[in-house]
Amino acid sequence: MCVGLGSRASDILAISAVIAIVSYVAGNLFILRVTNNTVAAIVDFVISFAICSKKF
């Protein structure tokens, strides 16, 4: 479950922390150095979608 009705605050905080950390490391530290900001933003979206589409 990602963020939705019936989600606990701790679930929302945990998912937000995971998305922030993974997106920062993958998008800003690796992808942004090699490509431009547009590609890094697309990668951030894909990472967020992939994390939220998993069943927790």
Rank of each mutant, 00 (worst) to 15 (best):
4 G>F: 10
34 V>L: 12
35 T>P: 04
50 A>T: 11
49 F>N: 08
13 L>T: 03
55 K>D: 11
30 F>I: 09
12 I>Y: 02
45 F>Q: 10
13 L>A: 14
23 S>F: 01
1 M>L: 10
26 A>Y: 04
31 I>R: 02
41 A>F: 05
39 V>L: 11
48 S>K: 00
23 S>L: 01
17 A>T: 15
10 S>P: 08
8 R>W: 02
19 I>C: 09
49 F>Y: 14
14 A>M: 14
53 S>R: 08
29 L>F: 05
52 C>G: 15
47 I>G: 02
25 V>K: 08
3 V>Q: 08
43 V>R: 00
8 R>D: 07
55 K>V: 12
50 A>H: 03
52 C>W: 07
23 S>P: 01
32 L>A: 14
32 L>D: 05
24 Y>K: 01
33 R>W: 04
35 T>V: 08
14 A>H: 05
30 F>L: 15
44 D>I: 06
27 G>C: 12
38 T>K: 01
50 A>N: 05
33 R>F: 05
15 I>V: 15
3 V>T: 11
33 R>Q: 12
38 T>W: 05
26 A>P: 00
17 A>E: 06
44 D>A: 13
9 A>C: 02
47 I>D: 05
41 A>T: 11
24 Y>F: 13
5 L>K: 11
3 V>Y: 06
12 I>M: 10
15 I>L: 15
23 S>Y: 00
27 G>Q: 01
5 L>M: 14
20 A>P: 13
26 A>M: 05
19 I>G: 01
54 K>L: 15
21 I>F: 15
38 T>Q: 07
6 G>T: 10
44 D>R: 02
31 I>C: 06
7 S>N: 06
17 A>G: 15
6 G>R: 06
46 V>Q: 02
41 A>D: 01
22 V>R: 03
39 V>M: 10
56 F>H: 04
50 A>D: 00
35 T>G: 02
44 D>S: 13
34 V>C: 12
33 R>S: 09
13 L>R: 11
16 S>H: 12
37 N>I: 15
2 C>A: 15
19 I>Q: 04
20 A>W: 13
16 S>L: 15
29 L>S: 02
32 L>Y: 08
